[in-house]
């Protein structure tokens, strides 16, 4: 049986891991390669790197980060940040990414997902959706949560997977960095609407939040601050999941 994945996320900028609250107020949290190796040793199933600044100089840093992490990592690596064209994805894959995550550029031009899938296969393309609660349902935001797109999150997940995304990385902007648990209603709505795997992101504080996310349909759970701050380890989280009857890789 396919096990549920625990995915530590490294938000990087200029070659360092950073972390903010509600996408704001970034602070330094360490070296990407060191953290990635530590999480693999703890039993992480995959590492996600999201580069938060995609200037030209920042992009060069991001590629160097991916190369360094790839050398030490023998589990899958997903990389996002600034992917606007097939050539951007190709550079990340050549540097050592196994999957690429696309966010703002796909909101602007969904055909990008099709172009990427045609070139690299759907299993390589992750659609990152940043969603916030609205009066009704959830709305999609772009540019690290700073700009509303007017899109409905569930409808966008359906359109995105039909266009070529093979996985959804679903972040609740309301919960991100707040440690108040995942937005389970959002998770349930999106995972019911699509047939590809869904990664829950934004708000994890305890291992029980992961158990709840799996119960709401998540195939994988992603977290950053709870691991960076040393509150808990991937090992401890997996143990709790196994106790709760969730199948994880030992």
């Amino acid at each position: 049986m396919l096990t549920r994945r625990i995915i530590p996320c490294l938000d990087t900028r200029d070659g360092r891991v950073v972390k903010g609250i509600n996408f704001q107020g970034l602070r330094d949290a360490g070296s990407p390669a060191e953290l990635a190796a530590r999480y693999e040793a703890q039993g992480a199933d995959e590492i996600v790197i999201l580069d938060v600044v995609a200037t030209d100089r920042g992009r060069a840093h991001a590629l160097e980060t991916v190369r360094e992490v790839r050398q030490v990592l023998s589990i899958p690596l997903t990389v996002g940040g600034g992917v606007r064209a097939v050539a951007d994805a190709e550079r990340l894959l050549d540097a050592g990414a196994d999957k690429v995550a696309v966010n703002s550029a796909a909101c602007d031009r969904p055909a990008l997902l099709t172009e990427l899938a045609d070139r690299f296969g759907v299993q390589c393309i992750v659609l990152a959706i940043d969603a916030a609660r609205a009066a009704e349902g959830w709305r999609v935001f772009r540019r690290s949560g700073s700009e509303a797109t007017g899109r409905d999150a569930v409808a966008w997940a359906i359109e995105g997977t039909a266009s070529g995304a093979g996985e959804i990385l679903l972040t609740s902007i309301d919960r991100d960095g707040t440690r108040s648990g995942y937005d389970l209603d959002l998770l349930r709505a999106v995972s019911d609407a699509v047939t590809v795997p869904v990664i829950a992101s934004g708000g994890a504080r305890t291992a029980d939040d992961f158990v709840a996310a799996v119960g709401a349909g998540a195939d994988a759970v992603l977290a950053a601050s709870m691991f960076h701050d040393g509150d808990t380890t991937v090992t401890a989280v997996k143990q709790r999941l196994a106790e709760a009857g969730v199948e994880v890789r030992p």
């Binding site: 396919l2 096990t3 299993q123 996985e167 590809v196 795997p197 195939d219 994988a220």
Partner: peptide, 13 residues
């Protein structure tokens, strides 16, 4: 099969 998530992405026995 369409009874499971496809693509299969993750660790399996």
């Amino acid at each position: 099969p369409d009874t499971v998530r496809v693509p299969q992405l993750g660790w399996n026995l």
